[in-house]
Design a protein around this nucleic acid. Structure first.
Lengths: 242, 242
DNA sequence: ATTAACTCAATGGTAGGACCAAAAGAGGTT
DNA sequence: AACCTCTTTTGGTCCTACCATTGAGTTAAT
C-alpha cells in the first residue's frame, strides 16, 4: 500500500469526514482489500496534505465503524478487516438501550424471531450442527446441581447457544439481530438466572429444545420454544411482585 | 454542564476510548440529558487531564455513534441527542454492503417479521387503524393505471404502509426494526417498482392484505403476505436473468 | 424605539512539532 | 539454534498556535 494516486487532497468542510469517506470508498470499492493496511498516519498526512490530527480522527471513525483494526509498533497501522456482525449489532443495541424497551415487548419480539430461527435451523442445519447443539446443552446440564453456579458463565453459554442456533439458519441477518438483542439485554438475562426455579427449568427447556431440533421434530421444538417464553414471563412477574 | 466531579482522570490504555466510555455512560445513565451539552473540549481536557487530541477523538467516536451532535462557534459544543434508528440502519447497511448479503436472505427475514406483524396487527389493531390501512391502500390503487407513475412517491407509500402495520402491533420493537430495514434497503425496493408486472401485482396484493386484516381473516392475510414474497422473489429472479 | 452594523469572546477545526511506548526485525552473543 | 540488544517504524499522547464560525452584546444610524 503505497500508491500515492489513491487519495487526493481535501479542502472543504470537516476534512476528517471527507478523508474517512474517501478511505471508506476505497475499502468498499475493494481498492484496498481485507488484510492489507492503509499507509501510515504520517504518509496519509502527506498524501492528504493535512495535519496528523485530522488523519487520526478519520481513522478513528473507520475503526469505530469496524472497517479497520489498528496495530501499534513496526509493521503496525490500520489493517482493513472484514466487517463482522458485531459492529452493526452494537449500534442496534445502543439504540435499544437508550429507548428503554419494555421487557414484555422485547420478549414478544424475541419469541417471534426465535420461532422462525428454530424452524429454519431444523430445515437447514446440518447433522453436525444439530449434534453440536445437543452437546452444548449437555454442558449446560452441569450447572443444574451446582450449589453456587457461575452465573456469568451460564449466561455466556446461553448466548452461545442462541448464536449457534441463529447461525444454523444460514442467514446472517438472523445472526445479526440475535447478537444485537443479546448485546442490549445480556444483563437482563443475567439477572433472571439468579432465580433458581427459572434457571433449572430453562436449562431443562434448552435441552429439550435441542433434542427436538436434532430429531427434526418441528412442532415440538416450537412448542418448547414457546414454553421458554412462558417461563420467562412467569419469572419476570415473580420478580416484579417482590 | 459544569459539574467537575462527573468525570475522572484516566491513565492507561487508549485514553480516548476510556473517555468515550465514561461520557457514554454519563449519557446513557442520564446524568447528561438530551439537549444539554458536554463541557467544551478545553474544559474536558482539563477535567480528564489529557491532551485535546484525545478529547477530540473521544467526541468523534460519540458523534459517530450518533449520541451527540457538534455545533461550532459560541454556545457551540457537543449536544446530547436522542438516538434514532438511523444509526443502527446505517451500520446494518454497511454490514450488508461489505458482506454482500443476498437479497434472498433479507427477504426471508422480512417475511418472518411481516408474518408476525400481520398476526399481531389483526389481534391488537383498533378498528380505526384497520380502516386507515384500507384507505391507504386505496390511494395506492391510483398508481395502477398511471402511465408514468412517481416511483419515489410510490415507494414512500409502501414504506408508510409497512410502518402503519408495525405500529398496529402496539410493540415499538417491531416498528423500529421495520424502520431500520427500510432505511437500509429503500433503494432496493425502489428498483423493484420499476418492473411493471411486480408493481401492479404488489399493489393489488397490498389491497388484498389490508382487506383481510380489516376483516380479521388471519389465515388469508398471512397467505397474502406470503404471496407478496413470492412476487418479490420472482421479480428478483427476472431481474437477475436479464 | 427599532433596526442594522460592528465587535468580541467562546468554541470547534486545523496545523505542526515533540516525545513516549509498543512491536518487529536486524545483528550480534552465547 | 536460542537468546539478548539495538534500531526503526508506527501508533498514542501532549502541546501550542492559529483559523473559522457563531452567538451575544454594543454601538450607531434611522
Amino acid at each position: 500500500m503505497s500508491d500515492s494516486s489513491l487519495f487526493s487532497p481535501v479542502q472543504v468542510g470537516r476534512a476528517g469526514e471527507e478523508i474517512a469517506l474517501q478511505i471508506e470508498a476505497a475499502i468498499l470499492g475493494e481498492r484496498i482489500l481485507p488484510g492489507e493496511s492503509l499507509p501510515s498516519e504520517r504518509e496519509l498526512q502527506a498524501q492528504f496534505k493535512t495535519g496528523r490530527g485530522v488523519i487520526r480522527e478519520a481513522i478513528q471513525a473507520l475503526k469505530q465503524k469496524g472497517l479497520i483494526e489498528i496495530r501499534k509498533g513496526a509493521k503496525g497501522g490500520a489493517y482493513v478487516k472484514k466487517i463482522e456482525v458485531t459492529n452493526a449489532s452494537e449500534s442496534l443495541a445502543l439504540f435499544l438501550k437508550q429507548n428503554r424497551i419494555d421487557t414484555a415487548h422485547l420478549a414478544e419480539f424475541r419469541e417471534s424471531i426465535d420461532r422462525t430461527i428454530t424452524m429454519l435451523a431444523i430445515t437447514r442445519g446440518s447433522v453436525e450442527q444439530k449434534q453440536e447443539l445437543v452437546t452444548a446443552t449437555a454442558e449446560l446440564k452441569t450447572y443444574l446441581d451446582a450449589p453456587d453456579p457461575d452465573l456469568e458463565k451460564l449466561a455466556e453459554l446461553d448466548r452461545e447457544l442462541n448464536i449457534t442456533l441463529a447461525q444454523m439458519t444460514g442467514n446472517p441477518v438472523f445472526e445479526w439481530i440475535m447478537r444485537a438483542l443479546q448485546l442490549g439485554f445480556s444483563s437482563n438475562d443475567f439477572a433472571l438466572y439468579e432465580d433458581l426455579e427459572y434457571r433449572t427449568k430453562t436449562i431443562l427447556n434448552w435441552c429439550q429444545t435441542a433434542e427436538f431440533i436434532a430429531a427434526n421434530e418441528m412442532l415440538q421444538a416450537l412448542s418448547s420454544v414457546g414454553a421458554h417464553y412462558v417461563l420467562l414471563r412467569q419469572c419476570v412477574e415473580r420478580c416484579q411482585n417482590q
